[in-house]
Every structure is written in C-alpha cells, then in structure tokens.
Amino acid sequence: MANFDERSGVVPCKTEWGAWWQTLEEVYIEANTGSDISAKVVKCDIRPRHLKIVVYGEVLVDGDLCEAVQPDDSTWTIEDKRVLRVCLSKALATADHCWKSLLTDRYHVDPYTLDEMQKKLTLQRFQMENPGFDFSGATVTGNYQEGGPQFKH
C-alpha cells in the first residue's frame, strides 16, 4: 500500500533552487541543479541545527535550520543526475512542530502554504493514530492561524 504522502500529495514551499516540504517526521529538500551532477561534486553537511549544501562549488543552502534535526538519520541522494534530494529527520516529530521556514532567516512559508502544511500534518497524525482508516482524501477546514482546524472526512 502506498504511504500517506504518495496518496495525498505534498505541500511544497518553492525556492529559487527548487522546493522543500515536510511530513510529521521529516523535511524534504529538492534542488534542481540544471546540469548533470555526481556525488563527487556535492557536499551536503547536515548538523543538528545547521545545513550546508554545495554543488560544483556553488552554495545552494547555508544556514541555521528552523528546528533541530537528527543528522545520523538524515540522507541525501541524486535522482536522474540533475535533482539533489535531501531528507532531514526532525528531532521533534509531532504535528505541532510544523516548520515555518527551512532556515531561521530564509525560505519562509507564506501564510496560505503554512496553513496547508499544518492541515496535512494534522491528517498525517490522524492516519498514524488510526491506521485502519484512510485519511489521504480527507480535508481539514478552518484556519490554523485563527482558531484551529475543523475535521471533515
């Protein structure tokens, strides 16, 4: 059976190099390099509170993360020789730890996208708490910024 994200889709935050999105447990980064790359030209330094990604000597991301991650459980891969994918394992993996930005000072989520991210994390939490039900097609209504969600299935 497909996982929750495959069934429900992702809520991305677009950036100049690609996009990032999150689940309850992880933050995903997808960097489109525009040229063929190999592991030899990528430097990805993942620390508990800092991330630095360099491709062909060009810094794509360098800064303090919005929240802490677990570096030993985080990975990066290259897909189709042109897409760098980074998977950061959140140190705090709960629905109330929805990242508002990738770094503390950059790649902030706009209010609408943040609301959609929070709704998705809530549905993912419901899915984990109720494994016999499929919440991938469910919706959450209401505004998280103003009073919280209301659940509809």
Rank of each mutant, 00 (worst) to 15 (best):
Q118V: 08
E146K: 11
L123S: 03
K120W: 04
D105W: 10
Q145L: 09
K119E: 10
S136L: 06
D105C: 11
N143P: 05
G142W: 07
V140L: 15
T139W: 01
R106C: 08
Q127W: 03
T122G: 08
Y144A: 11
Q118C: 14
K119R: 15
G148Q: 00
L123H: 05
T104D: 11
P131F: 04
Q124D: 05
L123D: 00
N143Y: 08
G132N: 05
Y107V: 05
G137F: 01
N143H: 12
G148W: 00
M128L: 15
V140H: 04
N143Q: 04
P111D: 05
D110R: 06
Y112D: 14
D134C: 02
G142E: 03
A138T: 05
P131L: 07
T104W: 08
Y112T: 13
A138H: 06
E116I: 03
G132V: 02
T141N: 06
L123K: 06
T141M: 06
D134R: 00
Q118M: 15
F126C: 10
N143C: 13
T122Q: 12
N130H: 09
R106E: 13
L114A: 10
G148L: 00
L121A: 00
K119S: 08
T113Q: 07
A138M: 07
D110H: 08
Y107S: 05
G147V: 05
D115T: 04
E146H: 14
E116S: 07
G137I: 00
D110I: 10
P131K: 01
A138F: 00
P131V: 05
L121F: 02
N143G: 03
R125E: 12
F135G: 00
G148T: 03
R106H: 10
Q145I: 02
Y107N: 04
T104G: 09
K120H: 12
V109A: 14
D105N: 14
G147C: 07
R125L: 13
N143W: 09
M117I: 14
L121T: 01
F133T: 01
D105H: 13
Q127I: 00
D105Y: 11
